[in-house]
């Protein structure tokens, strides 16, 4: 299945080579969980502070991803 990964702020350095400014399409096995995706990209769990799946906050890192979904990940950020 295909997942769109979007990485922001300092996490952009974990994008695979050849990605856009903040996003990449990644092919994963069915049943891949958020934590598996983090492992695959090499992102330490501790700095993946906010994970949104299709815009919805997801606290459970064992949640399975669906084909075609968009996973967006931020380190702790602030502003205002």
């Amino acid at each position: 299945m295909n997942v769109e990964v979007r990485l922001f702020a300092t996490l952009r350095e974990y994008l695979p080579a050849g990605s856009g400014r903040t996003s990449a399409q990644i092919e994963m096995q069915e049943g891949t969980r958020i934590c598996d995706l983090l492992d695959r990209l090499g992102i330490p769990a501790a700095i993946a502070h906010l994970v949104l799946v299709d815009g919805r906050y997801e606290a459970d890192r064992t949640r399975e991803l669906q084909d075609g979904c968009a996973v967006s990940i931020w380190p702790p950020i602030g502003g205002g």
């Binding site: 702020a9 300092t10 906010l50 815009g55 906050y57 931020w74 702790p76 950020i77 602030g78 502003g79």
Partner: peptide, 25 residues
């Protein structure tokens, strides 16, 4: 030590919020 105040705001400014606020709809 705080990720936001230690590095994030200095590197990206407050507009680092644009994508998260936008993706949250």
């Amino acid at each position: 030590a705080g990720e936001i105040t230690g590095q994030g705001l200095q590197s990206f400014g407050t507009a680092i919020l644009v994508n998260i606020i936008n993706e949250s709809g």
